[in-house]
Every structure is written in C-alpha cells, then in structure tokens.
C-alpha cells in the first residue's frame, strides 16, 4: 500500500474547501427559504474575478475579497428578480448559472494562465508539528480555516443569535414572520448576498489556491455538488462539514485507489455521494427542509 492516510486526509480537507464554502452560503440562503440554483454561475464568476483582482494587485487576499464581492454582485441580480419582481426561483437560479458561466468566460478571455501568487500555509510553532494531527489539520492555507470558521459562525448565528432566529422564521413560514412584523424581503436579500459572497470566495479558492489557474469552466460542476451537500447535511451547518468531506473524500480516495492499481468501478463510486444524499433525504423525512423553501413571498397577501 502506498496510500498514506495522513496525506490523504490532509488532501481531502483542501479538495473539500471550495464545495464547503459554497455550501455554507447556500445553506444560509435555503434556511431563509430561498432556493438559489445559481451557485455554479456565482462560483465561476468569483473564480475569474478573484484571479484577475489577485493578479492585478499581486495579493491573493485582495483576490479573495474581490471574488466575494463579484459573487455577491451577481447574486444581487437573483435577489432583485426573485424578491422584488417575484420570479420563480428555480428558473431564475438556472438562468443565473447560464448567465454566470457566460459572463465569467467573457471576463476571463484574456486572462487565461496559471497563478504564481503564493498563499501561505499555516505554520504554528508547536501545533503544526504535532505528529499526524499536525499534518492533517494544521498545515493548510488560511482559507481552509476561514471555511471552518464560517461554518462555526453560521451555526452560532442560526441557533444563538436573534437575527438568526428571525432568518429561520422567515424560512419556515414567511407569512407568519411577516405577520410578526419582520422584514422578510430584507432578510432574504441579505441571505442571498451572503450566499453569493461565499460562492464567489469558493470559486477564487479554486483559481488561486487549489489548482491554481484560470481556465474557462474551471469550477466544472462544483457548484452543483455544493447544492447536494446542503441537502445531505439536512440544513445543519456542522453536518455540512461531514458532507463536504464525504464528497471531497470520495474524489480524492477514488484517485488514490486508482493509483494503487485497485480495480474499482470509478463510475459507481462517483455516484455514491448522490445516492447517499437521497438516502439521507429519505431518512430525515421532509420536516427538516425549511417550510417556505422555493416559494415566492409578497407582503400584501
């Protein structure tokens, strides 16, 4: 066996970070009762904008911030359409993906290339050198930890803060929340913008750290996987980590098993996470999905 489980676990964390980032944003959006299927479009727009800003300023961190803004800007189109013009969320989200893929490709036409920006790795004096755990957990780039902090922050926000309570109320039953005097629309717009920013950041992680380069179509479906993970996690932030690492883990493991020369039916292994997601949906039943998910809200009714 040449597979080194320590390196495998460490690689898994990096491979899972973009989908985790995009998923945490989408989770908040869905908890607010909005289904945005445009994650892939926002992600790739973030990837190209992050790459261009990062290289323009020669600072990857500006790139990450720029990508988050780009993702949020694109998600504002979705917010305006679904919240103010009351368009159907499914169709608008699909349109956003189409538009985002086109836009990113247009923006990035002259920018194709690989990134030579260096994103430092965490190197703490003692902790990073702990055998096994140090290598797995404490030698990554800062964005890996940002993604985990975002998960923790989201958990805290949703379950402990008052604003989070309102957001959940809006997602469960927007009419009741409205009757209680909460601003449903504002809450949802903010959630959508947060989702867009996370998706943008996720995209720039691919173009600035993980691959790192800009090529048309570089996200290659990661945004769709993020959507699956949110469901897999049954809208629970902590489970999102498990979901992201499962999806990311299957990819990394599958490559490692192949290199090991084991005869594995790659295609069936790639299906496994999606089937697992369906299984989770069946096991948890419907009650857990936010009650108003995907429904339009108009205050006068």
């Amino acid at each position: 066996m040449d597979i080194n489980p320590i390196l495998l676990l460490a690689a898994l964390m990096v491979a899972s970070t973009p989908i985790l980032l995009a998923a945490i944003g989408e989770l908040v959006v869905e908890r607010a009762g909005v289904l945005n299927l445009g994650v892939e479009g926002m992600m790739i727009t973030g990837a190209v904008c992050g790459y261009i800003v990062g290289h323009g300023t020669e600072n990857p961190y500006f790139g990450f911030v720029g990508a988050a803004f780009a993702g949020a800007a694109l998600s504002f189109v979705f917010a305006a359409l679904t919240q103010f013009l009351l368009t159907n969320q499914v169709a608008t989200g699909l349109g956003l993906t189409m538009f985002g893929l086109g836009l990113a490709s247009l923006i990035g036409q002259g920018a194709t290339g690989s990134s030579d920006l260096i994103v430092g790795k965490l190197n703490l004096p003692i902790i990073s050198d702990i055998p096994v755990i140090g290598r797995i957990l404490f030698q990554h780039d800062p964005i890996v930890y940002v993604s985990l902090l975002l998960v923790a922050g989201t958990w805290w926000f949703l379950s402990k803060s008052r604003a989070g309570l309102i957001l959940r109320a809006v997602g469960e039953n927007h009419d009741a929340a409205h009757a209680l005097g909460y601003n449903v629309r504002l809450m949802r717009v903010l959630a959508i913008l947060f989702g867009g920013a996370c998706a943008g950041l996720a995209g720039s992680y691919i173009s600035l750290v993980r691959v790192p380069q800009w090529i048309d179509g570089i996200t290659s479906g990661a945004g769709w996987i993020a959507l699956a993970i949110v469901v897999f996690a049954s809208w629970n932030p902590w489970r999102l980590i498990a979901g992201a690492y499962l999806f990311g883990g299957v990819t990394v493991l599958q490559l490692n098993l192949q290199a090991e020369g084991l005869k594995i039916p790659t295609e069936y292994l790639s299906m496994a996470p999606y089937l697992a997601t369906i299984l989770v949906l069946v096991v948890i039943r419907a009650g857990r999905a936010p009650g108003s998910l995907g429904k339009s809200f108009h205050p006068s009714s």
């Binding site: 040449d2 380069q213 990819t251 490559l255 192949q258």
Partner: peptide, 23 residues
C-alpha cells in the same frame, strides 16, 4: 495510472497529480 475520463479538468488533474505524488 489514474484515469480522469476527461481531456481537460484542471481541478481533477491537480488532485490526481497530488495523489500520485503523495503515493
């Protein structure tokens, strides 16, 4: 040998290269 079943997928290629190197 790692098959990625695509001609161009930078993310997957990067992962495959990393897996090979780690092995």
């Amino acid at each position: 040998i790692i098959w990625i079943f695509e001609w161009l997928n930078p993310a997957k290629e990067a992962d495959a290269a990393k897996a090979l190197i780690e092995q």
